[in-house]
Design a protein around this nucleic acid. Structure first.
Lengths: 350, 350
DNA sequence: TTGAAAGCGCTAACAT
DNA sequence: ATGTTAGCGCTTTCAA
């Protein structure tokens, strides 16, 4: 209930030589009886500094509680320790995994500035424009679809761009991910091999567009059709993917198309909702409806009947992205495109 | 397979007036026949600028594809548009929700720099030290436990600090969250009212420490004990919380203490694992074991028997945090402590 | 091994 | 309404 004064004592006394409480390299230098540049060298650990002065400077830093200003450093050196990251969502555990991997992969004091595009390319463009103002060391985007302006801005900026998750398109610079097309295809082939002939699909449509889910659906459908199987119909919920949405959608689908033998879901969240619908309706025994997901979330594998799905390597994508950025900054070469693959989990639901 | 040259044409030609491909306000100014400061005023939308010059400047910006440099701006104005955020984890959907809320709450071009402490106060200290080098507009920390050094650094920096999730402790500056203590207590009261007398607990211990889960457990135990109920025992997995971990842990607990009537779980992930264990063992009918969670994840509510749990307002915590930061930056007053509360969901598992 | 000078790109303060 | 001047705090370059 107490209103509180923020930014107390910023000490920005711009008057006549009054105290500013922001200590600088100059303060440290004075304390240690060296020049500012020597302090800078000690902090960055570059250049020749005698052990004796080094210790003197370090002591001075401790004494006056100096905290380096990377903003000033970045301006002077034209080198940034920020990595701009645009993810379509963080609520989806998939991108949370990517982010965790990215953090583990980024070293050398690199830090991620995370923005969320909500699956909109226009939002992505806005976010990239704004991120570029930070002159980041690299930019990480999700997927290979971007507006022309986004591409133009990035190419003019001349910084490293990593497109993650998706290796189906032509990489702007570096791509690290997997092929959605092949994932859809392999899912279809597996289900065909299991003898299914009557297919259904349950999908979501996140805000504007989840391109990768759509590409999986497209190649899945193409594969079952070219095998002569029947696609009975689909139910698409116009909201972000979730367990409850999957449950509702499967109910809808089964009402419209009671004869489906197996349903391909846009991802595990949706598929788990499907499993719950079957459990709730007691469908499991009298009518073994096949359910197939995508991602291989651990929750799906912890269910009494583990979910049949495709395991994706989200953490690894993030990790490799971080490492690729570090490598590039250190002057190393980075693969143009890295496919981390995926793994089909047979499970017990299809 | 193509090694690719990153940072191509950085254009850092430091020679005699050769082309640098970084355009600056000066370039725009030249193009528009005004002074740099006028360009700056147009970009920031402050100060008096005639409509005519404004348009001329805007046109020039478009023409030469100028991208502002916020790093330089931040240095000159001693104002940053970065908000440092330290979360214990992002894999946990709870913090992903917080992050989403935070993004929605932050406006005015404020951007989050996210770091992950992995539930370690020492890591948090390191991350805060490193974040302060960016001179952020505010720092968001999780929980009210911090090392002394962390507290000292932050107070010296004199910037806004928001401690989220937890309002049990004394806020350093601003706290937005809920009371873990009361959550544990209310869970216990509810289960006692339902007639349960033989209690068990299944918990996790994330890396070093999940303080809030532990506080829930402590107040839960205190409450059932003071009501004269029996605490039969507990099973703690020494890993981060997850559905599979919950499933395994419940199995263990029931083997050691076959007489428990109801189990309080450290959170919904663990509790859902418990439900899956019961389903897999066919325990649901022959022996209706009570299961109670924490968080109110939508997956728990989409299960055939919705999980009994406490709904927390993660998104709102993030949203309010973002808004509080914006308010403070704009000079407004912010509540010292905001309790967003929680809501008990009766569900069908306890 | 150390330092002096210059400037990164922008904006606050003070003119005009 | 616009411009001039003088830095922000650091690091580069070049000299000692």
């Amino acid at each position: 209930m107490d209103p509180v004064g923020i930014m107390r004592d910023k000490g920005q006394n711009l008057g006549v030589g009054l105290t500013k409480n922001t200590t600088t390299v100059a303060d440290v230098a004075r304390q240690a009886n060296v020049s500012p540049i020597t302090v800078s060298r000690v902090i960055r650990g570059v250049g020749p500094v005698s052990e004796e002065t080094r210790e003197r400077v370090l002591k001075a830093i401790k004494q006056i509680g100096y905290v380096p200003n990377h903003i000033a450093g970045a301006l002077a050196s034209a080198r940034s320790d920020l990595v701009g990251v645009v993810l379509p969502s963080v609520s989806n555990i998939v991108f949370a995994d990517v982010l965790r991997g990215l953090h583990d992969g980024l070293t050398e004091g690199l830090r991620a500035v995370v923005s969320i595009s909500d699956y909109s390319l226009e939002t992505e463009e806005r976010l990239v424009r704004s991120l570029l103002a930070l002159r980041p060391a690299a930019v990480v985007l999700t997927g290979c679809e971007h507006t022309d302006s986004t591409v133009a801005m990035l190419s003019r900026a001349g910084i490293m761009v990593v497109e993650i998750m998706d290796t189906d398109g032509a990489a702007l610079d570096v791509a690290i991910g997997m092929s959605s097309r092949r994932a859809g295809e392999e899912s279809a082939i597996h289900l065909l091999q299991r003898g299914y002939r009557q297919f259904g699909y349950v999908g979501h449509d996140a805000s504007p567009r989840d391109f990768r889910a759509w590409r999986r659906r497209t190649s899945f459908l193409a594969t079952i059709r070219s095998a002569g199987a029947t696609f009975l119909g689909e139910e698409i919920v116009h909201e972000r993917s979730s367990v409850p949405a999957g449950r509702r959608a499967l109910k809808q689908l089964l009402e419209a198309h009671p004869d489906v033998e197996v349903v391909y879901f846009s991802n595990d969240d949706m598929a788990i909702g499907g499993v719950f619908h079957c459990q709730a309706e007691g469908l499991s025994s009298e009518r073994p409806l096949g359910i197939f997901g995508f991602n291989g979330l651990d929750i799906g594998q912890a269910m009494p009947k583990p979910l049949s799905t495709i395991l994706t390597h989200r953490y690894e994508i993030g990790l490799r992205t971080g490492r690729a950025i570090v490598t590039a900054i250190e002057g190393g070469d980075v693969e143009k495109s890295t496919d981390v693959g995926f793994k089909l989990i047979e499970g017990a639901t299809a």
